[in-house]
Nucleic acid binder design. Structure first.
Lengths: 112, 112
DNA sequence: ACAGGACATCGACGGACGTCGATGTGTGAA
DNA sequence: TTCACACATCGACGTCCGTCGATGTCCTGT
């Protein structure tokens, strides 16, 4: 780490994101930072009923059912998807609060 | 992959995100899906002049200068940060288009 | 009770990621 | 020219991630 001998530029004024806040938001972004999971969320969100069962999601990808189940588990654990077992089938729905949280984060981050 | 023998639910109507679009947006989110990089962007964005030099950013973390330089390179390669070498020091600035792209992505993804 | 289907879990594999110490590169001052 | 400094790059290490095949669990007909 460099010593604070001389000031070369502005001292980063204003209230930036705290370390705790960053550690809290990063997992949410990490869950979305995957092409497959991004398409999964998009597919579910663009569905007419706002939800989708795993059987349809499986057919939309050239991936194993185990892999899709894994991705859905990641999205569910991150609080992005709601899980609802109805009989034999399992329906996933997008939790709007999670996505709007990300949207507001980046819309308020840049004041321009 | 399951055979489309019987329709169990809605066929995922509406225009969802394409595979190419997902492959294009995912790296941008992956670059932001890290607590350190999130704080870096936040620090630069909340700076009074809208930019920050690496020397100040180094002091804000308990990490090696090599690690900070690596994170800045990732953010720069993803098109999130602009790099401007001015004499001995290097200044990084947030590219607003990248952040607003993410914001609009998630604000339009959920129609509610 | 039994069989079959829908989905989750497990264990394993290859590759990518975050971090570090060491070294390289370019700039300004003495 | 020589030195010190700011920053980038390199090589290496441990860990996490995406994907798979195999297996387990739960539900529903028959």
């Amino acid at each position: 780490m460099s010593e604070p001998g001389l000031a070369c530029c502005t001292p980063l004024s204003g209230t930036a994101m705290s370390a705790e806040q960053a550690e809290q938001v990063a997992p949410l972004l990490k869950a979305l930072a995957d092409p497959v999971r991004l398409r999964l969320v998009s597919l579910i969100a663009s569905s007419a009923s706002g939800e989708a069962c795993v059987c349809d999601l499986n057919d939309a990808f050239d991936l194993t059912q185990a892999t899709i189940s894994h991705h859905l588990k990641v999205l569910h654990s991150a609080g992005i998807l709601d899980r609802d077992k109805r009989g034999v089938w399992v329906y996933y729905a997008v939790r709007p609060a999670a996505l709007t949280a990300v949207a507001t984060l980046f819309s308020t981050a840049v004041p321009a």
